[in-house]
Amino acid sequence: MSDTSLIQIKGIRDGLLVSLGEASWPELRSALQERIEQQPVFFQGANLSLDVGSRVLEVSDLISLRDFLSERGIRLWAVVGSSSVTENAAQLLGLATRLFKPTPQVETLPVAKGIEDETALWVNKTLRSGTRIEFAGHVIVFGDVNPGAEIVAGGSVIIWGRLRGFVHAGAQGNKEAMVCALDLSPTQLRLADEIALAPKRQGKSQPEVVRIINGQIQAETWNFD
């Protein structure tokens, strides 16, 4: 079969894993579709995860694939890839982006020694309920973080808007990480290993900065002077 080199399918603990070979996305996509049309019974009811390597896929690519699959009784549940565009697209659609819980291999990453990767993820919109953003560096949100939305960052989190959802900064144990928001009323806030519940706000909202001081989470109002 000509398409065997384009796509590889193997069984994993959570269902089927499809790995893509070297070709353009339209080619790979039609190879996969052809394969599924040939063996509909094999794929029926399957949980499918897709390893796209470094390929960049947009939300619209994933939507059309997901809808194609779901019409054949196949559930697309994970898209794994090294491109952050692909990862964001998958997260926006509520798909998993890792196949397994972190393995020991992940724990060998440097922990708490400052943020190795001084990059930041720029999020130019309001994060609504059900959205989850995971990023190894810092995260900057220009918009609100609504209840039910989650941000997990290796570094700090800055929100130019209201924080009413869940934020975990310094998720790999970095105690230098901080969280800033124009209005700080999170459902729950974590810094490194510490957890804080925000007290009920009294009076007007003000910009605040939260950091760990003497081993405790403390919030300070941010002032010009």
Partner: peptide
């Protein structure tokens, strides 16, 4: 309202 927010997020994601 929370559920409405979730739905709006899904619609945004699907453009």
């Amino acid at each position: 309202v929370r559920d409405a927010d979730r739905v709006i997020g899904l619609l945004e994601a699907e453009e």
